Simulated scan of single mutants.
Amino acid sequence: MIYVLAFITTLPGRRDEVLTAYRANTVPVRAEKGCIEYAALFDPVNVEETPVPLGQDSFVVVERWGDYSQFQAHLASPHVGEYGAKVKHLIAKRVIHVLSPVDTAASDA
C-alpha cells in the first residue's frame, strides 16, 4: 500500500472553485482499482489555534492506493487529465509526496 499527500495551493480566492472540480472527480477516482482513500482536507473552520495552518487558498488531498502501479494508472486516467485541465490555470503550487507506511516499507522495496 502507498499513501499520497498532494498539497495544493490555489491562486488567491480560487480554492472553492478548485474544490468544486475535485468533488466532481471523486466518484470516478474512488471507483478506480486500488483506490482505498481519496479525501480533500483543509484548515478547520472556527479553530483559533492551528499550529501550522495551510491557509485560505490551500488544501491537502490524502490518498491511499493498493500499490504504486495502481496510483500510476490513476494518474493516466482520462478523468484525472480532465480535472487537471479544468484547474491548471487556478493552481499556484502543487507538491505531491508518495509515501510507504513505515511498517511495510522494507518489505515493499
Rank of each mutant, 00 (worst) to 15 (best):
A39K: 14
A39N: 12
A40F: 06
L41Y: 13
F42T: 03
F42W: 05
D43K: 03
D43E: 11
P44R: 12
V45S: 11
N46Q: 13
V47Q: 15
E48Y: 14
E48K: 13
E49K: 09
E49G: 12
E49Y: 11
T50F: 07
P51V: 09
V52W: 01
P53N: 08
P53M: 06
P53I: 03
Q56W: 12
Q56R: 11
Q56G: 13
S58E: 07
S58M: 01
S58F: 01
S58G: 06
V60I: 14
V60W: 01
V61A: 03
V62Q: 06
V62H: 07
V62D: 01
E63R: 03
E63I: 01
R64Q: 14
W65Q: 00
W65I: 00
W65K: 00
G66R: 15
D67C: 11
D67Y: 05
Y68V: 10
Y68G: 02
F71G: 00
Q72Y: 02
Q72S: 11
A73V: 01
A73E: 06
L75S: 09
L75H: 10
L75T: 09
L75K: 14
A76Y: 02
S77V: 01
P78F: 03
V80H: 01
G81Y: 04
G81K: 10
Y83H: 10
Y83D: 07
G84Q: 03
G84W: 00
A85F: 05
V87K: 00
V87W: 00
K88R: 10
K88T: 13
H89M: 12
H89Y: 11
H89L: 06
H89N: 10
L90Q: 04
I91M: 02
I91R: 01
A92Q: 11
A92K: 12
K93M: 05
V95K: 13
I96L: 15
I96D: 12
I96C: 13
H97V: 14
L99K: 02
L99S: 03
L99W: 05
S100Y: 15
P101G: 13
D103W: 08
T104C: 07
A105H: 06
A106G: 12
A106F: 08
S107C: 05
